[in-house]
Structures are given as structure tokens and as C-alpha cells.
Computed example of a mutant assay.
Amino acid sequence: MTPREIAAKAVMITTLAGAMLAAVHVLGWIAETDAKVEQGMLEAYCTGVATWKVEEARGVLLEHRTGHPDYDEIAAERCPGLWPAGRATNQRQLAQE
């Protein structure tokens, strides 16, 4: 192999390695973006369910409510803080009721 062929192969290998590194970086960025979008969609879903439940508890008529019911039936497990913890159990909490 001539020095020119060796240099050409070295450039080709370096270019290919750079392209592969860029592809891995782009795929990582896409996965991170997808996770952020999914989290945002879940937060919007949970907000809608919470709004619906609050308005339902306040007696807002069905046709005037905003938000939405738990259509996907995932709020109980995927929406932290949406469900009340239950009745108070210690004396301090009971005295405030």
C-alpha cells in the first residue's frame, strides 16, 4: 500500500467513526426528547383528570366541566398526588377536621 492509499483509508475510517458517533448522539437526543414529550403528555392527562375530579366534587354540571375523566384508567397508578391519602389517623389531624 502506498502512503496515499494509507492516508485515504485513515480519512475514510475517521469519517466513518465520526458519522457513527454523530448517529449515536442523535439517537440519544431523540430518545431524550421522546421521554420529555411523553412526560409532558402524562402531566397534561393528569391535570385534565384532576380538574375533572375537582369540578365533579364541587358539583359542577357535566356540561360545564373542563378537563376530562380518566379515559385510559391510568390515573390511579401514573398520576402521583391525584388520589387523597385517606382519612386522618393521628389526633392532630383529627382535631383539625
Rank of each mutant, 00 (worst) to 15 (best):
Q91T: 08
T51M: 15
P84V: 02
A35T: 14
A75G: 05
Q93I: 00
A23I: 05
E63Q: 14
M41T: 07
G48Q: 08
N90H: 10
E5L: 11
E43F: 08
R4Y: 07
V37T: 05
E73F: 01
A76E: 15
R65E: 10
P80T: 05
A35F: 03
A57V: 01
L42W: 06
H25G: 06
T47Y: 13
Y71R: 13
G67D: 06
K53W: 02
K9I: 07
G86C: 06
L27T: 00
P80M: 08
L42H: 04
Q96E: 12
A7G: 03
G67I: 03
A19K: 09
G40Y: 02
K9M: 12
A8H: 12
L94H: 00
I13F: 12
W83N: 09
A22P: 06
R92M: 04
L62N: 12
E38M: 13
A7T: 06
V49R: 06
T66W: 09
I30Y: 01
H64A: 10
V26K: 03
K36Q: 14
A7F: 12
W29Q: 09
D72F: 02
C46Q: 10
P80W: 07
E97Q: 14
I74E: 13
R65A: 04
E73Q: 11
V54P: 01
C79M: 09
A7M: 05
A7D: 13
G40K: 02
P69I: 02
P84N: 12
P69H: 00
E97H: 03
T51F: 04
E56S: 06
N90W: 11
E32Q: 11
D34F: 04
G86W: 07
L82C: 09
A44Y: 09
L42F: 03
Q93L: 03
M20P: 00
W83G: 00
I6Y: 03
V49I: 13
V26W: 00
M41G: 02
R92T: 04
A50M: 12
E63V: 14
E43D: 15
V37P: 03
A57G: 03
D70C: 01
M1Y: 11
V54H: 11
E73S: 08
R58H: 05
E77L: 07
A76C: 09
Y71L: 14
M1R: 14
L21V: 06
M1A: 15
P80Y: 04
A50C: 10
K9H: 11
A19I: 04
W52H: 10
H25L: 07
A85E: 13
T89N: 03
G67R: 06
I6C: 05
A75Q: 08
E97F: 01
I6T: 10
L27A: 00
V49P: 11
R78G: 00
L94I: 05
